[in-house]
Simulated scan of single mutants.
Amino acid sequence: MAPFAHEFPFDPAHGLALADLLRVPAPDAPGDFAAFWRERHAEARAVATAPQVGPAEEERDGVRLHGVTFTSVGGVRLGGWLALPVDGPAAHGFVVGHGYGGRGEAGPDVPLPLPASAAILPCVRGTGSRSLLPGVPDDAAGHVLHGIGSRDTYVIGACAADLWCAASALQELLPGLAGPGRLGYLGESFAGGLGALALPWDDRFAAAQLTVPTFGNHPLRLTLPCVGSGESVRAHHREHPEVTEVLRYFDAATAAARLELPTLVAAALFDPAVPPPGQFAVHNALPGPRELEVLSAGHFGHEGLARETAALARRRTRFFRRWL
């Protein structure tokens, strides 16, 4: 039985217990998977990001938040926020992704995992209030299908590149954080999957947290109903089964098998938006130092949510204190 009462027309636990989820594998990679992603990464690293910082917008949780813009692949100008320590220089740096809800003008969630930290919190292309683009749908169901007909045009690849360019912008703005192994990554849901895709190829990152990551094990995801962006992909696949060949290059679990950074994964047993087997496939594939925080539920309000959120925040601090 599902652990929570709900009104979804399917079981968000998909009948699987923790022992089952810990056995979900990653799909095999295409032969040129690594070459494809390394080429995308090289293209992004060659971009002159030309970051520009706006005036301070607010101050809270030990940081001062500024608007920031930077250039990403294709000459696209993106926006987001830059968080700077209120007192003293930044000792740590983070790139912080966002879920498919985007980021509104309320700004990003803080605090950051470690004191004396700076962070760039970008809105990837077509999302949030600061990176909307003509022709790119800003709703999850439309965005996740944009350019899906080819691996070279699929928006998910460009969004991963936006994270690499955000890292470049942060290191340009704060030269004290430049160089390999100086950054941490935080990504939840959509950004959890993007992080798994982006991080194996970038030596600037020392550690990562991926919370309820999406895009894991696409062949299995295509069989599992949900209320998230995966349902849009499932519907598209029914009319265009050939899309499976494109999705092979954007599988977060396949990429995670090449992610050797210390990684903390928070994966849920019950999740109506991101099927749990895909989340656990990302964790299970990791070859490097890894930690797992098992959540009762993701994308779902429940009585223990505040307690689990606080526990995860404490573990995140311990994790990044060890590795960053």
Rank of each mutant, 00 (worst) to 15 (best):
A169N: 03
E7P: 04
F190Y: 15
V136I: 15
N217V: 05
E59K: 07
P115F: 05
G228M: 14
L269K: 08
A268C: 04
A50R: 14
P137Y: 03
H146T: 13
S131V: 10
A46E: 15
G62F: 10
V110D: 02
L114R: 15
A17T: 13
L22V: 06
D32A: 04
T309W: 00
G179V: 12
G79D: 15
A48E: 15
G74M: 07
V96F: 02
Q52A: 08
L82N: 01
A5L: 14
S72C: 00
Y249L: 00
L295F: 02
R64E: 11
R60H: 11
A267K: 01
H240Y: 12
H6P: 07
H66M: 06
R182H: 10
F250L: 07
T317A: 14
L21C: 05
G192Q: 05
V265W: 07
H218Q: 11
G80V: 15
A158C: 03
P89E: 15
A48W: 06
F10D: 06
V24P: 02
A268Q: 06
E58D: 15
A17K: 07
A5Q: 05
G288Y: 01
W81L: 01
E59P: 09
L261Y: 04
Y100A: 14
H41L: 10
F215R: 06
S150C: 02
E291R: 12
R238I: 09
C159K: 04
E39P: 08
R234I: 03
D271H: 03
I120C: 13
R322I: 10
D203H: 09
L324W: 10
V73D: 03
S131Y: 07
P115T: 03
L247Y: 05
A235W: 08
A273R: 08
A26D: 03
C159S: 02
P275G: 08
L22Q: 05
A196M: 01
D139E: 12
A83Q: 09
E172Y: 10
L145D: 08
L16D: 01
C159N: 04
P122C: 13
A56D: 14
H6G: 09
I156D: 00
P9T: 10
G179Y: 04
L174M: 03
R307F: 07
G149F: 05
S129N: 07
A90C: 11
E188I: 06
A306W: 02
G128E: 06
V282H: 07
W37I: 00
A208P: 11
A256V: 04
A119Y: 14
R60W: 01
A206F: 15
L174H: 08
S168M: 00
A91F: 11
E57K: 06
A257E: 00
L173F: 07
T211R: 09
V47E: 01
T69N: 12
D139N: 09
P89M: 01
R314K: 15
L78W: 09
I148G: 04
G301Y: 10
P277K: 00
A5N: 12
R204I: 08
T214M: 05
R60V: 06
G176H: 01
P3F: 00
W81P: 00
G278R: 00
V76A: 14
F33C: 00
P276S: 05
A206C: 06
S168L: 13
C159G: 02
L84F: 03
A161Y: 00
E188V: 11
P272F: 12
G88R: 02
F215M: 13
D202I: 03
G288M: 07
V233H: 12
G142Q: 05
G195L: 03
V73G: 09
L183V: 01
L145S: 05
H237F: 14
G181M: 15
E308R: 12
